[in-house]
Amino acid sequence: MTTNAIDIPGYKPGTWVLDASHSEVGFSVRHMMISKVRGAFGMKSATLIAPENPLEAKVEAHVDATTLDTKDEGRDAHLRSGDFFDVENHPTIDFVSTGVRIEGGDFLVDGDLTIRGTTKPVTFEFDFGGFGNDPYGNYKAGASAKTVINREDFGLVWNAALETGGVLVGKDVTITLDLQGALQAA
Rank of each mutant, 00 (worst) to 15 (best):
N4D: 15
I8H: 10
I8A: 11
G10P: 04
P13W: 13
G26W: 02
F27T: 10
S28Y: 03
S28Q: 14
R30L: 10
I34P: 00
S35D: 04
S45Q: 06
A46N: 01
I49M: 05
P54M: 09
V59F: 14
V59C: 04
E60I: 09
D69V: 09
K71V: 13
G74H: 11
F84K: 03
V87C: 01
N89S: 09
N89P: 01
P91F: 00
V96D: 04
G99K: 01
R101K: 15
R101C: 14
E103M: 13
G104Y: 08
F107L: 14
L108R: 07
D110Y: 02
L113D: 03
T114C: 03
T119C: 02
K120Q: 15
K120W: 02
V122N: 07
T123R: 12
F126C: 10
G129A: 12
G137Q: 05
N138E: 10
A141R: 01
K146Q: 13
V148W: 04
N150G: 03
D153F: 10
D153V: 13
F154D: 12
A160L: 08
A160N: 09
A160Q: 14
A161C: 00
A161E: 08
G170I: 05
T174N: 08
I175A: 05
I175Q: 06
L177C: 04
L179G: 05
Q180M: 07
G181H: 00
L183A: 06
